[in-house]
Amino acid sequence: MAEPIVRKRTYWIVYVVLLALTLLTVLLGYLHMGEFNMVVAIAIATIQASLIAGFFMHALYEAPLVRVVTVGGVIWFLIMMTLTLTDYHTRGWLPFPGK
């Protein structure tokens, strides 16, 4: 394991991209986009998170199992989010109070 997993140059490139994305997301925040403000902010945050996980945390270079764990964690979070929201988004579809 004398060879480093990722080259220093890669780290610096990723770092610059991350800072640029931060600037971009702040600037986009000033636009009036309605619900899309949140969508854009979350999308950019997801890209930043993927870059940090993939390069800084070596997820792209580790054993496949590590990627399974990472993706698995995210999928389980999405299960929790989606199934909870099935309730909140379908409330009020029927013309009865409380349904």
């Binding site: 000033y30 902010a41 930043q48 998170a49 940090i52």
Partner: peptide, 14 residues
């Protein structure tokens, strides 16, 4: 933190 920043700070700018 990147996600906390997105949901707390960026939504009130406009």
């Amino acid at each position: 933190w990147v996600f906390l920043f997105a949901i707390f700070y960026l939504q009130g700018l406009h």
